[in-house]
Amino acid sequence: MGKRLEREFEAVRKKMEEAAIRLGMDHPEVHRLSKRLDRLHNQMLWERKALMEVPRRGRDRFYRIRRYSYYLRETSEGCG
Rank of each mutant, 00 (worst) to 15 (best):
M1W: 09
M1R: 06
G2K: 13
G2H: 10
G2C: 06
K3H: 07
K3N: 07
R4V: 06
R4Y: 08
R4W: 07
R4I: 08
R4D: 10
L5W: 01
L5E: 10
L5N: 03
E6Q: 09
R7Y: 05
R7W: 07
E8G: 00
E8H: 09
F9H: 11
E10F: 08
E10H: 07
A11M: 10
V12Q: 00
R13A: 08
R13P: 00
K14F: 02
K15I: 03
K15N: 05
K15Y: 04
M16Q: 11
M16W: 04
E17Y: 10
E17H: 07
E18D: 09
A19H: 06
A20Q: 09
A20P: 02
R22Q: 11
R22E: 12
R22G: 00
M25D: 05
M25F: 04
M25L: 09
M25V: 05
D26A: 09
D26P: 00
H27R: 02
H27G: 03
H27W: 04
P28D: 07
E29A: 06
E29N: 06
V30C: 01
V30T: 03
V30P: 03
H31K: 13
H31N: 08
H31Y: 05
H31S: 08
R32L: 09
R32V: 08
L33R: 00
S34T: 12
S34L: 09
S34H: 12
K35N: 10
R36D: 06
R36W: 00
R36E: 15
R36T: 07
L37P: 01
L37D: 01
D38R: 03
D38H: 07
R39C: 01
R39G: 02
R39F: 07
R39Q: 12
L40D: 01
N42A: 03
N42L: 02
N42K: 02
Q43C: 02
Q43E: 13
L45N: 03
L45W: 02
L45D: 08
W46R: 14
E47K: 10
E47A: 04
R48N: 10
R48L: 13
R48G: 05
K49T: 06
K49S: 04
A50P: 01
A50L: 08
L51K: 13
L51Y: 04
M52I: 07
M52D: 11
M52A: 14
E53P: 00
E53F: 04
R57F: 12
R57S: 11
R57P: 03
G58A: 05
G58I: 12
G58N: 02
G58Q: 04
G58W: 05
R59W: 11
D60E: 12
R61C: 02
R61E: 11
R61S: 04
R61G: 01
R61M: 09
F62W: 11
Y63C: 09
Y63T: 14
R64V: 12
R64W: 03
I65N: 10
I65W: 06
R66Y: 10
R66A: 11
R66Q: 11
R66H: 11
R66T: 11
R66G: 06
R67D: 14
Y68G: 11
Y68E: 15
Y68L: 15
S69M: 14
S69F: 15
Y70R: 15
R73Q: 15
E74K: 14
T75F: 13
T75A: 10
S76H: 13
S76I: 15
G78F: 13
G78N: 14
G78Y: 12
G80S: 14
G80P: 09
